[in-house]
């Protein structure tokens, strides 16, 4: 473990708490102008469930196991809140991104490009590819609604920073222990790349107190 990865994981936790706070505070999944994509949250739950199949078999540390349990539980809880508790505020007509395409694409790629053709390893690879594009329904929804509440932008900032810091962690680990993992490196770069234009707007507008509006 290194500081970059620890801060990255904490940013990931922060993003989940921001989302839960937003939903509890507004008691909905849709603020006046910004919405949370159910599809993205369902994809994240799928990512954690397919990635942590080694939860009991591969004990790395108490931290690792605790975080895995938290990510699985919190992502399922968020899906539950959106699907049942705040269902009335969830408008599927706005969540129009074809999630089946990214699920299908990630599954196909995981069957072709993986480190080992075992069920667990292919599921893990699928979760890595899926996580890279899981934010697309959310970003797509932002482009449709054209703007987002500030708290939603902080959610996206934390989420984008988490994987961005993982890139730094991988550079550090390559440098210090010759750690090489092409699959997570490339997927992580794609995932962080998807946030670039969001980061640009976030830094140039939101942090200056302006509203988050897409040009």
């Amino acid at each position: 473990m290194n500081l970059f990865r620890l801060v990255a994981d904490l940013m990931h936790l922060v993003s989940i708490f921001i989302l839960l706070l937003k939903m509890q505070k507004t008691r909905s999944v849709a603020g006046r102008c910004s919405r949370i994509s159910f599809k993205t949250q369902a994809l994240y739950a799928t990512v954690f469930l397919t990635r942590y199949t080694d939860l009991f078999a591969n004990f790395q540390s108490l931290y690792n196991t605790t975080m895995k349990v938290f990510f699985i539980a919190s992502s399922l809880y968020i899906v539950f809140l959106m699907k049942f508790k705040f269902k009335a505020t969830n408008d599927p007509r706005l969540d129009t991104f074809k999630a089946q395409y990214v699920v299908g694409g990630a599954a196909a790629l995981a069957l072709i490009v993986n480190y080992a053709f075992t069920v667990q390893e292919v599921l893990w690879t699928f979760s890595i590819y899926l996580e890279a594009v899981a934010i697309l329904p959310q970003l797509f929804m932002l482009t449709k609604t054209g703007e987002a509440e500030v708290i939603t932008t902080h959610y996206l900032f934390a989420l984008g920073t988490y994987r961005g810091l993982y890139l730094v962690n991988w550079i550090y680990r390559y440098w210090t222990e010759y750690y090489v993992d092409w699959i997570v490196w490339i997927a992580g770069a794609v995932q962080t790349g998807l946030y670039c234009d969001f980061f640009y707007i976030y830094f140039t507008k939101v942090l200056k107190g302006a509203k988050f509006e897409l040009p």
Partner: peptide, 10 residues
């Protein structure tokens, strides 16, 4: 997994 190492990251 690279080189049969288990996944040690989240």
């Amino acid at each position: 997994y690279p080189g049969k190492k288990k996944h040690d990251e989240l």
